[in-house]
Nucleic acid binder design. Structure first.
Lengths: 184, 184
DNA sequence: ACCGAATGAGACAGTAATGTCTCATTCGAG
DNA sequence: CTCGAATGAGACATTACTGTCTCATTCGGT
C-alpha cells in the first residue's frame, strides 16, 4: 500500500478544520497511518501545516482555472466554481478559518491571487448587470468561502446530504433566502 | 482598573477564532492582562474555553430573545437578529468553527436551543411565503453563522468597514448576489 | 494619604506533545 | 519466492506550554 500523500493531507485538513488543536497522534489516526509515518513525510507540525496550505492553494487554484471564470454568464461560471470546490471543501474550510500562517507577514501571495480571480468574476457579473452592485466583490468572495465552510461542516456533521452541496451554496449565494417572484 | 471579565473573554474569542492554537500567554496579551491574572480568573485553558462557550451562548440567546423573532415580517425579524449579533460576532465565529467541545458528547443543549429558535424563524418565513422553500431552515441557519463569521473576519482584517456589517450579511442572506428586477 | 486587594513580572516544577530512534513486520517489485 | 524498502508500534529524550508560587508594585475605596 503506497503512501497517498494527498489523502493524508485531505484527512488532516478535515480534522483540523473542526479541531485545530488536534495532536499529531490524532491526525495520524484520522489519516489511517502511524505517527511515525506521518512524521517521516512531514517533519513536524509546521511542515504539515505548510504542506496543507500548499496543496490546498494549489488545488483551489486548479479548481478556479478549470471553472473558466471568464467564460459565459457569470452565474454559470459561479456554478462551475462551486461544483469544483466540492472535493476541496475541507481545505477551504481549514484555510479560510485558520490564518495563523499568514499573520507571520508572508500573507500568502497564492491566496491573494485566488481572491483576486474570484473577485474578478463577481465584478464581471456586476458589470454585465447579472449581479447587484451595492456590495463589494471582495465581500462576495469572503461570503463564498464562509458558505463553503458552513456547507462542508454541515455535511460532515451529517446535517445535510453531500449531494446537496452545490445547489445549497449556489442557491443561497445567487438568490438568497427571499422568495423570488416567478417573472422571468 | 477593575477586571472586565466580559472584555477578556471577548478578546479571547476574537483571537481564538482565527488562531485556535494560541497559548495562554498570547491570549493574555491580546486581552491586555498578564498570564497570572488570566489564570486567577480562569483556572486553566479548559475553564477558559468553557467560560467562553458559556458567555457566548448566553449572549447569543439574549440577542435572539431581543430580536423578537416571532414578531412582524420574517425578514424584519432577521434584520433585527443580524444587527443584534454584531457585538457578539467574535463569539459566533469562534463557537461555530470550533466544535471541539461538543464532540465530547455533551453536544451543548444551549446551542441546540438557539439553532432551533433561528431555524423556526426561517421556517416561519417559508410558511408565510416570504422565504424560498427549496432549501432547509437548518441550512439557512448554518449559512447565517458562516456569513457572520466571514463578516467578522473581513472586518477584523480591515477588508471591510465595521458599519457595513449588518447590510452586508442581511443583503446577501436575503437577496443573494443576483440583481433583482426593480418590480415591486 | 492610607491600606487592603488586585495585578504584573518572573521563577519554577509538572505535564503533555513533540522529535527521534530502534526493531520487528508487512508490502511490493522483480 | 526473495529481498529491499516502507510501515507500525513503542521507548526515550526534548521541547513547549501549563499550573503554581512569590514578591514588588499599582490600584481604588475610604
Amino acid at each position: 500500500m503506497s503512501f497517498d500523500r494527498d489523502a493524508v493531507l485531505r484527512a488532516a485538513a478535515e480534522l483540523l478544520a473542526r479541531k485545530a488543536t488536534a495532536t499529531q497522534d490524532e491526525i495520524a489516526k484520522a489519516a489511517g497511518i502511524s505517527r511515525a509515518t506521518l512524521h517521516r513525510h512531514f517533519a513536524g507540525r509546521d511542515a504539515l501545516i505548510r504542506a496543507l496550505e500548499e496543496l490546498g492553494l494549489r488545488q483551489l487554484e486548479q479548481v478556479v482555472t478549470d471553472a473558466r471564470l471568464d467564460d459565459g454568464a457569470a452565474r454559470e461560471a459561479l456554478s462551475r466554481l462551486i461544483e469544483g470546490t466540492r472535493p476541496v471543501a475541507g481545505f477551504i474550510a481549514f484555510l479560510s478559518t485558520e490564518n495563523q500562517l499568514f499573520e507571520e507577514g508572508e500573507m500568502n501571495e497564492g491566496w491573494e491571487r485566488i481572491d483576486a480571480r474570484i473577485s474578478a468574476l463577481f465584478r464581471r457579473g456586476q458589470e454585465s448587470g447579472e449581479f447587484r452592485i451595492d456590495m463589494s466583490p471582495i465581500w462576495f468572495t469572503e461570503a463564498l468561502y464562509g458558505l463553503v465552510a458552513a456547507a462542508a461542516w454541515a455535511i460532515q456533521a451529517g446535517r445535510t446530504a453531500p449531494r446537496d452541496y452545490t445547489p445549497m451554496i449556489l442557491g443561497l449565494l445567487l438568490g438568497g433566502v427571499e422568495r423570488r417572484d416567478p417573472t422571468p
